[in-house]
């Protein structure tokens, strides 16, 4: 079990939680299989120790954290966030982690740092989807993601090392993953080994694969449809079978508009989707 505090109310959604076994058995993590149930199966023996997360690029202090550091260098807190998948389903998850800003401040960003580039582990032996096109969906590995500097420094943006009070299971992105609750889930990159501060906008995996469907920003937006389905509403995954499935309206920025809408105030969000 992890040692952590409960976060302040502003980081604690009051929606009904998605049960733990649903959070851990319904995953998009193509490194362990492109079907939702596969990551739980193929990540069962995923070893995260040793693990090295490096922070470099436009910083004054390069950092290298091992698995232990991830759990000990920062005060861990539990935050309950809504997670909205771009596929129009959503969950409510109690994460354990720390603000990404705490880590970045340690690295002391230079003023030239404008973006943050993240990279997932590339190790086809440990991540079978990376060596098997059929299992891994044939996307380009390693998985990469990115944020603008102000998004990365936002207090809502966190690095999670646990959920439901325990260290992250492999299928949820062990040992450390990003959680950006106002963006579609694919931005919240899993099993991170590299964080690099950059001067230009970094490439992102789904954007490279289908730029007309997935943008760099990927802010949850009920008014901008995915080309193949509406984003105006979502199915909340809680408990129970077919009849319990609950379609609810999708909120701008996934309900975090008060906190983050100002980051995008002069942007045309239909263009920067």
């Amino acid at each position: 079990a992890l040692e952590y505090q409960k976060a302040a109310a502003e980081f604690t959604a009051t929606d009904k939680l998605t049960p733990e076994d649903k959070v851990t058995h319904h995953n998009n993590f193509y490194e362990f299989g492109a079907q939702k149930s596969q990551p739980a199966e193929y990540a069962r023996n995923f070893k995260v120790d040793p693990w090295y997360l490096k922070v470099d690029g436009q910083v004054n202090n390069n950092l290298l954290l091992d698995n232990d550091d991830l759990f000990k260098q920062f005060d861990l807190e539990e935050r309950i966030y809504r997670l909205r998948c771009v596929e129009a389903w959503s969950m409510v998850i109690p994460w354990v982690g720390f603000p990404l800003a705490s880590l970045l401040k340690k690295a002391d960003p230079k003023s030239s740092a404008k973006y943050v580039a993240f990279e997932t582990l590339y190790d086809p032996k440990r991540m079978p989807g990376q060596s098997n096109r059929f299992l891994g969906g044939g996307i380009d590995y390693p998985y990469v993601e990115g944020l603008r500097m102000d998004e990365a420094m936002h207090p809502l943006t966190m690095l999670a090392v646990g959920l439901y009070g325990k260290a992250l299971p492999g299928q949820n992105g062990a040992p450390v993953r990003l959680v950006v609750p106002w963006k579609y889930g694919f931005k919240s990159i899993k099993s991170i080994v590299s964080i690099k501060l950059t001067t230009t906008e970094p490439p992102t995996t789904w954007n490279k694969l289908a730029p007309q469907e997935y943008g760099f920003y990927a802010n949850v937006n009920p008014k901008v449809d995915h080309p193949r389905w509406s984003q105006a509403s979502e199915r909340r995954i809680t408990t129970g079978g077919l009849f319990a499935s609950n379609r609810i309206a999708t909120l701008p920025f996934n309900g975090y508009a008060d906190e983050v809408a100002s980051l995008y105030k002069d942007m045309d969000l239909t263009r920067y989707y």
């Binding site: 319904h26 939702k36 077919l242 009849f243 499935s245």
Partner: peptide, 13 residues
């Protein structure tokens, strides 16, 4: 299975 919650997290899909 679907009505008794036996089809994983998202029986709809």
């Amino acid at each position: 299975s679907a009505f008794s919650d036996g089809l994983g997290a998202d029986p709809v899909q």
